[in-house]
Nucleic acid binder design. Sequence first.
DNA 1: GTGAAAGCGCTAACAT
DNA 2: ATGTTAGCGCTTTCAC
Lengths: 341, 341
Amino acid sequence: MRKPTINDVANLAKVSTATVSRVINKQDGIKTQTKERVQKAIEQLSYIPNALARSMVRKQTNTIGVIIPDINNPFFPLLISGIEQQARKKSYFTILCNSNESPEIESELIQVLLERSVDGLIITTADEYGHQLQPVIERKIPVVAVDRQIKNFEVDTVLVGNVDGAYQATRHLILQGHTKIAIIRGPQKTTPGYERFAGFQRALEEYKIDLDEGYIIEGDFKEQSGYEGTKRLYSLKEPPTAIFTSNNLMTLGCLKALTEIGWILGEQVGLIGFDDLDFAEFVNPPLTVVSRPMRQLGEAAFDLLYAQMTSEGDWTKRHYVLSPEIKIRQSCFLKSPNQQK
Amino acid sequence: MRKPTINDVANLAKVSTATVSRVINKQDGIKTQTKERVQKAIEQLSYIPNALARSMVRKQTNTIGVIIPDINNPFFPLLISGIEQQARKKSYFTILCNSNESPEIESELIQVLLERSVDGLIITTADEYGHQLQPVIERKIPVVAVDRQIKNFEVDTVLVGNVDGAYQATRHLILQGHTKIAIIRGPQKTTPGYERFAGFQRALEEYKIDLDEGYIIEGDFKEQSGYEGTKRLYSLKEPPTAIFTSNNLMTLGCLKALTEIGWILGEQVGLIGFDDLDFAEFVNPPLTVVSRPMRQLGEAAFDLLYAQMTSEGDWTKRHYVLSPEIKIRQSCFLKSPNQQK
DNA sequence: GTGAAAGCGCTAACAT
DNA sequence: ATGTTAGCGCTTTCAC
């Protein structure tokens, strides 16, 4: 009734545990005959090796931890798929954790992952200063930061070009004839929040367009803030003719507000969002967006982590920056006469 | 440079490992003074207990495995959130795995989870016959099936009323005056696929509407099949005036096809989907759907698992069925004159 | 080619 | 109130 152990197998097969261990681990130097006897015993007992015990002696778990801030953001499942796919190839197992954008939960999760002796960590942190990572760094556990940088520690990082993407988005708006352009930006203490705003600014400066303070809305990357921000914008004496939303959730919120208040997309207001949405094509008119190669981001992150985990001695930290792509659909053209085209 | 162990702490604090263990586990019966000494040592070494070692002796990991078939289906993140939230309350840790709808991967994952000695398993299986679960059942590891039943074993189950939801959806279509109603159904070997079709049939029978064989499209719950199914429907000599899609991804595919072929939603064809979509309100016209309480599903699943894990002796298997709700928006009204209203 | 035995880091009796 | 010690199930020298 007890879970069978390597001992039970050894007894049944009339060999030592060492031999069983060798069979399990596919080491050679074992007579075919005994090997088969062992395999039959394993079969009979439906023995499953205990990974905990193995990890204790090997001092490695073949497990990596992945911490993401919001599993309900469609961005992350794709990222996760990318990570898992690569991990699976190298037979690493992934433990996925959701910090829910809370630095406290993130700290707890790190603690728990450390207790469970993960071999490495991939993280999109909820707090870019990264004090939470202290224990990880201390133990020299391989880490890679995805999508958001860590300020306090020098760690491997994989990002997409935020400044670049936001710059392109804003320029697109400008080239459509918009001059009253608003941004619903993310928290300025996060890299994406900060950089996307920087790209936005750069485009405006380059085209010598003034930035009205009232056109800057402080969001938090969640739907609700996009929703409220849009309403705020609409209530301005002079509402913008175009909005750049800094992430998909806020784009969604913006869209909801637009519909609700009857601010007509593509006629009275243009919109471009950072990050694609699976339904962007069904919005009326279809939504123009900055799209990020999320899956590749995940793949690159694991590859980097793997390189780190398997490298001996010193490791030189690397930063990868992938390029976003702007998907032009139709939400940025304005049909009103005072806009060109 | 080595990870500090309980021994290091004991030495530094000049106590035995047993005492350190007691402090770590917050057992009382320890002089405040020594306790503090131990805590200081822990602090100084930034010691983190090794959960592997602990689990080995305790024979429990406080970890549950969760296997879902498709992390990119917006349904599952919600489910996961529900599970995690409850798990966290009872300080259980969740390992999330994605089978990608593959029974083979699912088997592997189960194997790995078993190797890692999870205390329980929550699963939405990729193969409802459930042979993969054999080893889990054998070891008497608590399991709960979510959203899809297991045919070969009697296990705790949490579902939503598929028949009911599909029945309501179809009836809604009928009451809008539709008689040429098609269904894009899921694989008939899965419970949701089968039951949703049954609900569909029941409504038609009840209202004495004939079911044209050509109106039954065999999908696989993925976007592509919804897309292709819709095109097939359109190419019929006599296309249906309404479509019931059996899950969100196929609804999405259907929508894409509709747009592409110019089959106008709400004018030439009505649509109701099983499962809500975050953008259902932005479709033109807004999409009517059958909505499932996904978060609650997850909560209920963990609660059930927890009850099982903490119960002594025999456990009577339970089945919970939560009720879906139909969210009426506007995609089912037809504007053409030969339909009532 | 195979076995004996020493741990891995921790907990839980059992002593004291 | 605290210490001693025997494992938990496995891998890995080191012998034979």
